[in-house]
Nucleic acid binder design. Structure first.
Lengths: 200, 200
DNA sequence: ACAGTAATGGCACTCAGTGCCGTTGGGAAG
DNA sequence: CTTCCCAACGGCACTGAGTGCCATTACTGT
């Protein structure tokens, strides 16, 4: 796998030729399966997005939008225990290698679109309207800042971090217009909050 | 200016040689001033960030964090009227050309860091903690979704759109845990809100 | 005018990505 | 078993971004 090479040698230090050679295929063939070197660490992302769409569509209508979206991102980021170390390495690359950080944006755009489409339908507005688009960005931010923390601690679980990240939002805006986040309890208590606690 | 060529011919259709030649300098020299072709539309972003740091530092201590950050992003995105058409073209490229969308992420990371550093100081936590990082993402999302709308309408002003985008957050989380954003007044009324109205 | 230094830009190289096209391999039909 | 056909394969050559090296040029102060 190309991942292995990236992890061992570094992304920039591994050429496409190296990967093709290691995979026992021609360089030209590799580019027929992956549109760019940057896409190699991503695997089949579109499949994950399709799962997320399906998951969202299956949620009860009366589940509040924020909760629905939160449930979806939790589900989206669920992995079998044995894949987690691998997933960690993958995310480490994606969030730290500049070329991949940049390229990932394009994937995130598709991800945000799934969120935005769902939010738009719920809100009864166009998919390219301000609210659904903003919501897409917000949940992407929640996910990525949680991932960032997750990578910082070998023993961390992602779900509580996602909850904490969402809790930051609640603390910032929930306490009413007079209280900045400086006032209320900081969301830093997050990881201490039990699973589900932040999800109303 | 390289911008002019990108606007006329398209980003991908303009080679670095074209630009260097048009600028009357050698290709090698161009790469000494700009680390990559992708950086050309950005100009001196770091200077803008420095201004934002200064602006934030000068704000009164008792201004709530959200309001402080909002004021900063409004200030950051203020341009002289005569530069606005140019700025529009620039942002159109940055938000629509895939290579630039991807690359811009690296600039946004630095931008988010300014936000996060300020938030961290205010909250009394580490700059790489969950809350400030999340806050950085949130305000980036607010900015970019506002820009996206701005580009959709030739006659739009950015500031009301920024206010509306922030209002989306307020409506999602301000109304208490029982009300999804579906309940309250949609932030779509945003552009109608007068300047300053959303900034408590 | 001149020495010293910084900026310039030509040259050649690496690597990603692409178009073209000949080769191969594995059925399906005879 | 042979032949035909189609799709996958992969070599080759090309473009374009980005970089190291180094000779040349332009500018500085003396």
């Amino acid at each position: 796998m190309a991942l292995q090479l990236f992890i061992e040698r570094g992304f920039d230090e591994t050429t496409v030729d190296d990967i093709a050679h290691a995979a026992g295929i021609g360089r030209r063939t590799l580019f027929r399966y992956f549109p760019s070197k940057n896409d190699l660490p991503w695997g089949d992302f579109e499949a994950g997005l399709q799962d997320m769409r399906t998951f969202l569509a299956a949620l009860p209508e009366d589940l509040p939008l924020v909760d629905a979206l939160f449930a979806a991102i939790v589900d989206f980021n669920r992995f079998p225990a044995e894949e987690i170390p691998y997933h960690r390495k993958r995310m480490e690359l994606l969030l730290n290698v500049p070329a991949l950080v940049a390229h990932s944006t394009l994937r995130y755009a598709a991800w945000r679109e799934v969120i935005a489409d769902f939010a738009a339908a719920r809100l009864g507005v166009e998919a390219d309207a301000l609210e659904p688009r903003s919501i897409g960005w917000i949940f992407l931010g929640v996910s990525l800042s949680a991932y960032e923390q997750w990578l910082q601690r070998e023993d961390a679980d992602l779900v509580p971090l996602l909850e904490s990240a969402l809790a930051v939002l609640r603390t910032m805006f929930d306490a009413g217009p007079d209280a900045g986040p400086g006032s209320g309890p900081a969301a830093g208590a997050g990881p201490a909050a039990g699973p589900g606690s932040g999800v109303r």
